[in-house]
Design a protein around this nucleic acid. Structure first.
Lengths: 156, 156
DNA sequence: TCTAAATTGAGAATCTGTCTCAACTGGAGA
DNA sequence: TCTCCAGTTGAGACAGATTCTCAATTTAGA
């Protein structure tokens, strides 16, 4: 068991959340997915491996993991939510490539500070925020310059 | 017909988009709604007035208006989209009160500038972005200090 | 006025996600 | 190790927003 996985299961135990076979599988699945993933990807992952974890359990468990701070939920606007492990990483925002779907993380503390300032000015108490920049990533830009086959497509 | 409405219909004509009775009604409805609205609000608006515009037409037309830049679509994360007229207004972001649902607009050019800088650094070509801050608005803050009935509720 | 093409309406379909409830199970205590 | 029960699960119904389908209708140019 990887140290991260061990840490996660430890946190569940500490919180008095039962370590069921399904939850173990989901934690493992999250790590094998790497970065960002959605509920359906995880469901497919289990189906392909022959593990049986129901849709309801996946959604429930992802919700629990968000609640206890092990995952972060990112609302993508295309009415599908993505999740990403938090594991002590800095709070970051996302650039999303409309061409290849790549998600690039970035950290810009000055933006965070300005947001806080805006809130203070309006007497607004911030609890959470999302900043997403949609556009074309470096790789797709290069490709397009090379290929130049016309419109990039990829909705939104 | 208001000058804004005239301008909007002019834009539709210029684009070769047919001016049907339903589209006229939707344009008028958008203006009478004022600020932010969702597809369902618009549908209700028509139902109450006795106008008959189908749900499909509303969604289709709103999509068209976003496409040609007359409306801006705001994804709220609770998997319902809001729309707002663009009509030459400055690009702004939103603070959303989790308690009363109030949407407060704000402009912060410095944040925009920093975003552009981040993109430039990554070779990312930005096309659009969304920044939403969730929290508790001034009015609800005051109310809570006065009432102090416990948790504010309102999920997320 | 005619006509082709665009648009509409009604309701089915889809897509995420949540809920229900009977069956199951982890793990604390005996 | 055994028991027990509160917490969990699975299957599928359900929900809400949005999109799709396709026949009927309408717009706008000729």
């Amino acid at each position: 068991m990887s140290p991260q996985l061990a840490a996660m299961t430890g946190i569940l135990k500490d919180r008095g959340i039962r370590l069921t076979a399904e939850r173990r599988a989901i934690l493992k699945g999250i790590h094998s997915c790497g970065g960002h993933f959605d509920a359906d990807t995880l469901l497919d992952h289990f189906r392909r491996r022959g593990d049986r974890v129901s849709r309801a359990t996946i959604y429930r468990t992802l919700g629990t993991l968000v609640e206890i701070g092990l995952l972060r939920k990112i609302e993508m606007g295309d009415r599908q939510s993505l999740y990403e492990p938090v594991e002590g990483r800095e709070h970051h925002e996302h650039m999303i490539c409309l061409h290849c779907g790549e998600i690039i993380e970035f950290v810009e503390p000055e933006i965070e500070r300005l947001q806080d300032e805006v809130c203070r000015r309006s007497g607004f108490t911030p609890q959470d925020h999302t900043l997403q920049i949609y556009g074309i990533c470096y790789a797709c830009n290069c490709e397009n310059v090379a290929g130049e086959s016309g419109t990039a497509g990829a909705g939104r």
